[in-house]
Amino acid sequence: MSVAIDADGRFSGYASIFSVPDQGGDVVMPGAFSASLKARTPARVRLLFQHDPKEPIGLWDEIAEDARGLRVSGRLLDGVPRAQSLRALIAKGAIDGLSIGFRAVRASRDGRTGTRRLWAVDLWEISIVTFPMMDQARIASVPSGAETAQLAATLGAAAQLFRA
């Protein structure tokens, strides 16, 4: 399976999915990024490799919330060796994870489940990663039918978690 990246190194996907628990027990709520995105342009949110501040690899062209989550479009930069190798890895589907680097501004914790709901976050960076904390946070052009069905099942399970 290969993932869409064009000859100029442009790609898009979701860096975070709303209302879905990640592997650390965090759930990003709809609207959590809105204040941060108003205060910081996409060019000021760093595009890194593996959350390493010594590994900038490109620029974000667009970062926006939609009904599903945090949709991003970016590009890997020519002349950056790590970006060049990532371009090939992404094109072949060898790496496709996305992960957010942030500071929680407003959060609440469910005392029964331990789940932390993030109501407002200050977004600092979004990284291309090998293993994202949120499995659905991936570089992709459009979710396939199987991914859409999996997302619907995950959202249904998350909704049950919050109703309890």
Rank of each mutant, 00 (worst) to 15 (best):
R10D: 03
T115H: 01
L59K: 12
V3W: 12
G58I: 13
Q136W: 08
R117P: 02
G97H: 06
L86M: 10
A153D: 10
M1R: 14
A158R: 00
D66T: 00
V105M: 09
R163Q: 15
A164W: 04
S85L: 06
D96Y: 06
P21T: 08
L155I: 03
D26G: 01
E65I: 10
L98W: 02
V27S: 13
P132Q: 02
V142Y: 04
I128Y: 09
P42E: 10
V20H: 03
L123Q: 05
G101K: 03
K54M: 08
R71L: 07
E62M: 15
A157P: 05
A43I: 07
E55H: 13
L151I: 05
A104Y: 01
R116E: 08
W60M: 03
G156D: 12
I95E: 00
G74L: 02
K54P: 01
F49Q: 06
A164E: 12
P132G: 08
A159P: 02
G156C: 04
A137Y: 04
R87I: 01
S108Y: 04
R112C: 08
S16G: 09
E55K: 15
D66N: 15
R71M: 04
S36Y: 01
V3Q: 11
A157S: 15
L161K: 06
A146R: 14
Y14S: 05
E125R: 01
A67D: 14
I17H: 07
L155M: 11
L86V: 13
P30R: 00
L86Y: 05
W119F: 11
E147Q: 15
R40F: 04
M1Y: 10
R106N: 11
V20I: 14
A88N: 07
R163V: 06
F131H: 10
R106I: 09
R109C: 07
W119D: 12
L118E: 02
F18W: 00
E55T: 13
V20K: 02
H51N: 07
R68W: 03
A137G: 10
L118K: 02
S2P: 14
G58D: 02
F162M: 13
S12R: 15
K92S: 14
D66Y: 08
I95G: 07
A39K: 12
L86R: 10
T130V: 07
P42F: 09
R103L: 07
G97I: 02
R44V: 02
D6M: 09
S144Q: 04
A94F: 13
L151Y: 08
D122V: 04
I139G: 01
E125K: 00
H51C: 08
R117M: 12
S127M: 05
L48G: 03
L48A: 05
A137H: 08
H51D: 12
K54R: 14
W119P: 03
D78T: 10
L47H: 09
A164M: 09
D61T: 11
D66H: 09
F102R: 02
S12A: 12
L118I: 15
W119L: 14
I95K: 04
R46E: 12
F18E: 01
V28N: 06
D22A: 12
F162E: 14
S99I: 00
R109Q: 11
G31Y: 06
I100K: 09
